[in-house]
């Protein structure tokens, strides 16, 4: 049990260390997953808002696989004023579904609803989204001169590359070509499944070989006497050595016990004591549990 406690302590220490070293992974699935995905600055005859107006718009993409609430964050077109437009909390419209979009209209008429911002994009070349504390930058984009009715966005949703898009795609995937599934791409390269067999079998083997190596050596590792390793005085003390690789079965133990018993006790022709191997009664036995769990052979 002492060994188990030591192992648990080490495991906890490792976990805390990993958490401290890689804090980013703990922040996953938050407003950090939001991306400015596409913008249209000069909207002459393109996407109209719910008032029938052609306004500049900003599309936000939730790159996570869970719903993210953009409410409480800030949108701005001024790097010196990150808290320019506060997106109200608590409105269901601010909940962005997994891998989905929300479009804000930069028309400087915030009285039209929470999706209408208090700034436009004409006098700026910058858009950013900030966390609720007004300090943490979630995403920002700097854009140059824009063309009318041509949107500027990520070439594929959430990706790093930006450019002018062939089609404006508010509330839709920026990539308008045919999307191949991962499976289709895989089979293009590996039409007969040989690659899959080689890769997958290698991985399955690797996983189980790792387990094999670990458990081949586990007994040795946990039976190392750490005290003895680090304590000089202990090394000098004579230790009882266990014989490596020799397993003493219950029958052998019983025979040794009988021999000792006969040696210590007076020998009789007719023994009163009966030496027997009694089956230990317990609910679980490592080698018999499967037998008990088996059904009868099908007839």
């Amino acid at each position: 049990m002492k060994t188990i406690r030591t192992v648990i302590r080490w495991a906890l220490a490792c976990f805390i260390l990993v958490a401290l070293l890689f804090p980013g992974s703990l922040l996953a699935q938050s407003t950090r997953d939001l991306k400015i995905n596409e913008i249209l600055v000069l909207n002459d005859s393109n996407y109209v808002d719910d008032y029938g107006q052609h306004s500049a718009w900003i599309e936000i993409f939730n790159s996570a696989y869970n719903t993210v609430d953009i409410g409480g964050s800030y949108l701005t077109n001024d790097p010196l004023n990150p808290t320019k437009y506060y997106i109200p909390k608590g409105d269901p419209i601010t909940q962005i579904a997994p891998r989905n979009y929300l479009v804000f209209f930069a028309d400087n008429v915030p009285t039209r609803g929470i999706l209408h911002l208090n700034f436009t994009l004409e006098e700026t070349d910058y858009v950013a989204i900030y966390e609720g504390n007004g300090k943490g930058l979630i995403d920002a984009v700097k854009f140059g001169p824009q063309k009318p009715d041509v949107s500027f966005g990520r070439l594929t949703d959430g990706n790093h590359e930006w450019g002018f898009l062939e089609k404006t795609t508010p509330m839709a995937n920026n990539f308008t070509g045919t999307v191949e599934s991962a499976g289709e791409k895989f089979v293009e390269m590996d039409p007969y499944g040989v690659g899959m067999a080689v890769i997958a079998m290698s991985v399955v083997f690797a996983a189980l070989i790792l387990l094999y190596i670990v458990f081949k050596n586990t007994k040795r590792i946990y039976s190392i006497n750490l005290k003895r390793l680090f304590c000089r005085e202990c090394k000098k003390e004579p230790q009882e050595e266990s014989l490596p690789g020799i397993e003493i079965t219950g029958e052998v133990n019983a025979a040794i016990a009988m021999a000792i018993h006969l040696y210590i006790s007076e020998l009789h022709d007719h023994e009163e004591a009966i030496l027997t191997i009694k089956k230990v009664s317990r609910t679980y036995s490592p080698w018999s549990s499967k037998i008990y769990g088996l059904r009868n052979q099908p007839r």
Binding site: V187, Y192, M196, A197, A200, F205, L208, I209, L211, Y212
Partner: peptide, 24 residues
């Protein structure tokens, strides 16, 4: 007897054999 684990890996060949035939 940890080396028995490797048999469990080898028997997964059936999965990828069937996968290849299904593609064909």
């Amino acid at each position: 007897n940890p080396k028995l684990m490797l048999i469990g890996a080898a028997a997964q060949l059936g999965i990828f054999g069937a996968y290849a035939i299904a593609l064909l």
